[in-house]
Write a protein that binds this DNA or RNA. Structure first.
Lengths: 151, 151
DNA sequence: GCTGAAAATACGGCGAC
DNA sequence: GTCGCCGTATTTTCAGC
């Protein structure tokens, strides 16, 4: 379904979505039209989901990242549904995964600093029903952070 | 440094970077040029780091996400430097954070499936020197995944 | 911050390979 | 599926105020 050119194109667009079709055509050795058609197809097929701006978190005082492990009190379908719906609404929670192991969910939380994290925990996260326990892991350094999946 | 308009603009661009300045100007109640100038400034100041295409991982068979906790064998400066340099090079590792707690690093790894994860662990990750131990947490569902930080 | 105009690019159709 | 060329429409970009 995706040939080598498509894969290269995807990596390029995941690296820099502002590249013009002309620049891409030079890199890939294709015509502008061919690049245009391929991108259209990748967008139509849903392979490219969307285009976004990435913000430098340190520049907007959002440099405090925390991973929070959560156990639910019970694992009924309703408890899961309610928890997932409410946690999704929290803007501080950038990512939430249902996982297997010692706990049920991993949340990636981004806030200003430790004080705002404390506020977030008390006034937002732990007000969600059915949470059994939480465990916070604080990041002290970002070694790598990319959105590029190489296919 | 950032006024309310800038913040709205950042949220809009983090949601959809393909919006034209004209569309943005309508939403924000500004002229096209004012929007242009504000975006230029956000880019120059480094608040906007870059623009990227986001790929639907399920469409490219990269739906298998794993969090891997890593302890180093020792915590000398050289060990840390070597580990971080090598782990950054691995394309399967999308994110790597230095953390405080029971382990030293959290890695977010995205691969095809369990088989490729096994291959990755054997042939790539665990060939890095100075790793003391690893612990993998497998995701069984993605509840939320956004890149938007609301400032 | 605005208006207006120039330059660059995207877009869609065409026939041909 | 790709290419090159054609337009036109849209968008970006940057004067000058």
């Amino acid at each position: 379904m995706l040939d080598t050119t498509d894969k290269k194109l995807l990596t390029l667009l995941q690296t820099d979505a502002k590249k013009t079709n002309k620049e891409l055509s030079n890199i890939l050795g294709l015509s502008v039209t061919a690049v245009y058609e391929r991108i259209r197809k990748l967008e139509r097929n849903g392979v490219i989901d969307r285009y976004v701006a990435l913000v430098n978190r340190d520049k907007v005082r959002k440099g405090f990242s925390v991973f929070c492990h959560i156990k639910l009190a019970q694992h009924s379908r309703d408890y899961i549904r309610v928890f997932e719906a409410k946690v999704t609404k929290l803007k501080e929670v950038l990512e939430c995964y249902h996982v297997s192991g010692d706990y049920d969910y991993i949340l990636k939380i981004v806030v200003d600093d430790m004080d705002t994290y404390r506020e977030f925990m008390i006034n937002k996260l732990t007000t969600i029903e059915h949470i059994g326990s939480t465990h916070s892991v604080f990041t002290i350094g970002e070694v790598k952070n990319t959105t590029i999946v190489e296919v």
